[in-house]
């Protein structure tokens, strides 16, 4: 299992956000994308997930372009942007079941995932009563029930409190130890074991 980026370039209007981004990421590794605001972190993540097309270069999954049907890339991918894909009028459990139905599922049950992110006792409350941090935790819970080795996360720690960040780091470490891959952006330090982490700094 390997994700490889070859000479990615992206322009937005007249401005070139980045050129010649190349890296390869193996199973059990976390790629931390760093850079200032406006450096193109989110855009890079969108290129890697296939939401946007790069102006130049290519993203390969196991040696095949992520755009080719053979690579089955979407089946392996769990994406979480900076918004939480949740519906305010649905309960936590209903939201999680919906997200579980979109991605390929593993055997973990949704209740267990809610327990894991400490939302077990509000599982039947409507999401509109949640705080921003709780919504983020619920969105992260959807990763736990997805049978996808690659997580691409745009600022997963945003809006989380200290306990929430620690929880995320613990979940991410478990995923990496099981041979998963994570690509994420962050403005904070990430307290995950350095042996997992590879860094990519944009805007230099």
């Amino acid at each position: 299992m390997q994700l490889e980026a070859q000479n990615l370039r992206c322009r937005r209007g007249p401005k070139t956000l980045f050129t010649d981004i190349s890296f390869s990421l193996d199973a059990g590794k976390l790629l931390l994308v760093e850079g200032q605001n406006g450096a193109g972190k989110t855009t890079l993540l969108k290129l890697l997930s296939g939401l946007r097309r790069p102006d130049k270069g290519e993203v390969l999954w196991n040696g095949m372009s992520i755009r080719s049907a053979n690579s089955q890339f979407n089946r392996q991918l769990a994406w979480l942007g900076h918004q939480n894909p949740l519906k305010e009028d649905q309960t936590a459990f209903e939201n999680l079941s919906m997200l579980g139905a979109i991605r390929s599922r593993n055997e973990r049950c949704a209740y267990e995932a809610l327990q894991a992110v400490k939302l077990g006792n509000v599982k039947h409350k409507a999401v509109k009563t949640f705080s921003a941090g709780m919504k983020r935790r619920l969105a992260l819970a959807s990763l736990l029930i997805a049978d996808t080795p690659l997580w691409i996360l745009d600022e997963p720690q945003a809006a989380l409190d200290k306990a929430g960040i620690a929880l995320y780091e613990q979940l991410a470490t478990e995923h990496l130890e099981n041979g998963g891959m994570i690509i994420m952006t962050s403005h904070h330090d990430v307290a995950i074991d350095e042996r997992f982490i590879e860094r990519l700094i944009l805007g230099q």
Binding site: G50, L51, L77, Q83, N84, P85, K87, R103
Partner: peptide, 17 residues
């Protein structure tokens, strides 16, 4: 609009469906 703004649409676009 709602699915677009809250990112649900992205989830569908990147899923196997």
């Amino acid at each position: 609009k709602e699915d677009f703004q809250d990112g649900t649409l992205e989830q569908w676009a990147l899923s196997e469906h």
